[in-house]
């Protein structure tokens, strides 16, 4: 009988080791998934960053009286270049989206600019990148949420404490984006 008891212990021990290895590898995998999700946003932010000089060159010929709009774009671009880490980059991204939104709104007043093929292409390209950034932000937040929940849940919390894992920050919308839009009817 002692052999069977020994075998039961052996199975329990091997099972516990495999379970612990599974938890450990799962958490390592999640940690890297969060880093990768952020890197995938960063790729798009850089792509948008690279399109901006072309956009500014295209519009400045038409919008000479809109210096404030163009300056805001240039400043936001510089802020992004200086930003390091998700939090600062998220802030720079919010500024950039605000500046681009303003530029495209003002462009509505310039029919010749709107008819320019180069401007149309750049606007289309930047809008497509913006949509992709929004999707990847959502993806990043989902990855962070899964990671944060896992490291607080039993049994992962024990392994997470051993690995000294800490909760990650979500990519939050900027304050001005969360504000209610004021709609006034004539």
């Amino acid at each position: 009988m002692s052999w069977i008891i020994l075998a039961v212990f052996a199975f329990t021990f091997v099972g516990a080791v495999l379970y612990a290895v599974g938890l450990y590898n799962g958490l390592v995998n999640l940690k890297h998934a969060v880093v990768r999700a952020w890197a995938n946003i960063d790729v798009l932010l850089k792509q948008r960053h690279d399109e901006l000089p072309k956009l500014v060159n295209t519009v400045k010929g038409y919008m000479q009286h809109e210096k404030e709009v163009l300056t805001r774009i240039t400043e936001a671009r510089s802020a992004y270049a200086r930003a390091s880490g998700p939090e600062q980059q998220a802030q720079a991204d919010a500024e950039m989206r605000g500046a681009l939104g303003r530029l495209f709104a003002v462009a509505e007043n310039y029919p010749e600019l709107k008819a320019d093929t180069s401007f149309q292409m750049l606007q289309e390209r930047i809008s497509a990148i913006e949509e992709q950034i929004a999707d990847r932000r959502e993806f990043y937040n989902h990855s962070v949420n899964v990671f944060n929940v896992r490291i607080e849940q039993i049994p992962d919390v024990f392994m997470a404490n051993l690995m000294r894992l800490e909760a990650r920050e979500l990519f939050r919308a900027a304050e001005e984006e969360r504000r209610d839009v004021e709609v006034s009817f004539p």
Binding site: G26, N29, L30, A33, R36, N40, V43, E131, Q132, D135, R136, F139, H142, S143, V146, R150
Partner: peptide, 11 residues
């Protein structure tokens, strides 16, 4: 643990 991607923005 793998979030679902949207096709247009999948990496």
């Amino acid at each position: 643990d793998t979030p679902t991607s949207r096709i247009r923005s999948m990496a």
